[in-house]
């Protein structure tokens, strides 16, 4: 039995969106295991981003508990969460969230400046195949390249977990696959526990496990008999 990196129990989350109250999670139990690549599948509004945000220490649940390697995460002590994110988590977002005023190298340096045992920005960009585009600004890069910079930025600190929120959502299929290959490689080569959110069921085939969410509940959890290499996916 592999060790659980994350243990979430009976998570609920309600938040205010303008004048509407949104119930994003309605009681979720989930474990993520060491070195595992998990895909969280579900249509938009199913609560998967909220779940990922809570796991990543970006948000706290309205009720329920989350533990990371046995330590409680559902605290509203901002300093604890910040330290957790700084030391252990790498994030990848659908819209890359690169800082437009910084070059690829400098965007990665944002992380290496504050991490304890980081790769160099050059090494991280080399890992995602962008060793030649170090000094380009985000506006000078294609969408796929921007997302790879974002991945380089996320892994530069050598995080324990990598959380990816719709990493291919803004990309066309072939570019998306390149990005997924990078994520797959990081998971395999660095052993980083990885969770990928998507609404695209095909991407589930590259995972160890697929967790399907719907309307704030976990609908089902399936373990794949084998991981299909990202390069073989198509949609």
């Amino acid at each position: 039995m592999p060790t659980a990196v994350f243990e979430a129990r009976n998570l609920t989350k309600t938040y205010q969106m303008g004048e509407v109250e949104v119930q994003a999670l309605r009681g979720v139990d989930l474990d993520l295991f060491e070195g595992e690549l998990t895909v969280l599948l579900g249509p938009s509004g199913s609560g998967k981003s909220t779940l990922l945000n809570i796991l990543g220490g970006l948000d706290i649940p309205t009720s329920g508990t989350v533990r990371y390697c046995g330590e409680v995460l559902d605290t509203d002590d901002d300093a604890t969460l910040t330290r957790f994110r700084r030391e252990h988590v790498g994030f990848v977002f659908q819209f890359y969230n690169l800082i437009p005023s910084l070059t690829a190298r400098e965007n990665v340096a944002l992380i290496t400046d504050i991490a304890t045992n980081p790769l160099t920005p050059e090494e991280a960009l080399q890992l995602v195949g962008l060793g030649q585009r170090l000094d380009h600004f985000p506006a000078q890069l294609s969408g796929g390249e921007q997302q790879r910079v974002a991945i380089a930025r996320a892994i530069a600190k050598q995080p324990h977990v990598l959380l990816c929120d719709e990493p291919t959502g803004a990309l066309d299929a072939s570019t998306g696959i390149v990005v997924l290959e990078v994520i797959e490689r990081i998971n395999r080569e660095l052993g980083t526990t990885t969770a990928v959110i998507t609404h695209n069921a095909i991407i589930g085939q590259m995972a160890d496990r697929v967790v399907t969410l719907s309307e704030g509940h976990i609908q089902k959890t399936e373990a794949n008999p084998w991981r299909r290499p990202a390069g073989e996916l198509s949609w």
Partner: peptide
């Protein structure tokens, strides 16, 4: 907003 979110997600503190 989103840049702030990214910075915080990577571990920049409120103070930073």
């Amino acid at each position: 907003r989103e840049q702030i979110a990214a910075l915080k997600a990577f571990g920049y503190s409120n103070r930073d």
